[in-house]
């Protein structure tokens, strides 16, 4: 009986402890009976049920195996696969969308810089035309002023020459009056004029 030797090795310490601990309370015959009962057949080694254990284990395991391999595991695997596919798809879509967004932002920036350049051009050309107009008007105004000042000058010159022309007759008048007052002699205007011109 190899089972018995193994059994006694396994159960002796256990039974001893049980016996020692229970000795204080339990009557001897109960202890002996229990000890006997425990060691009579160690259930995990009892060959009486070996066939039945194997039989029922194989049945249970077969049921479990077919249940899992035919129904549940494929179902879980499918769910997981669907999810990973979905995630991959979503990632693809996200990448695509990101590319689109990048394109859009690129074209937006391009149009923005175009617009900016155009605005710059417009401003530049406006400024040039305004400058040109300004210069033209300046030139016109200058020309006008020149003409007017020329006119004024000629008039002044005319007035001056007229005044210069009158001055002789005035001087002659003044001299005639002065001579008359000083000497009491009357001189003709022509003589006075002749005398002045002679000087």
């Amino acid at each position: 009986m190899t089972f018995m030797t193994l059994l006694s090795n396994l159960t002796l310490p256990v039974s001893d402890i049980v016996m020692m601990a229970a000795a204080a309370a339990a009557p001897d015959d109960v202890l002996n009976m229990e000890h006997h009962e425990a060691s009579a057949s160690f259930p995990p080694f009892d060959p009486q049920y070996f066939a039945g254990q194997i039989f029922w284990l194989l049945i249970s395991f077969a049921i479990l195996y077919f249940m899992l391999s035919r129904v549940f595991l494929p179902r879980i695997g499918q769910t997981l696969e669907e999810r990973s596919n979905r995630i991959a798809d979503d990632l693809d879509t996200a990448a695509q969308m990101q590319a689109q967004a990048e394109d859009a932002s690129k074209s937006y920036e391009r149009s923005l810089s175009d617009a900016r350049a155009k605005a710059h051009n417009v401003a530049e050309s406006t400024r040039a035309s305004v400058d040109a107009e300004l210069a033209k008007e300046m030139a016109e105004a200058d020309a006008l002023a020149e003409k007017q000042s020329e006119l004024a000058e000629t008039r002044i010159r005319k007035i001056r020459t007229e005044a210069m022309a009158n001055i002789d007759s005035i001087a002659a008048d003044v001299a005639q009056a002065a001579i008359e007052a000083v000497s009491g002699k009357k001189m003709t205007a022509a003589a006075v004029t002749k005398a002045i011109k002679a000087r």
């Binding site: 009486q48 049920y49 066939a51 039945g52 254990q53 039989f55 029922w56 249970s60 049921i63």
Partner: peptide, 13 residues
């Protein structure tokens, strides 16, 4: 062979 349905078989099932 004794293939009786036992408490062990019950726990397996």
């Amino acid at each position: 062979y004794d293939l009786s349905f036992t408490n062990a078989s019950f726990m397996m099932l």
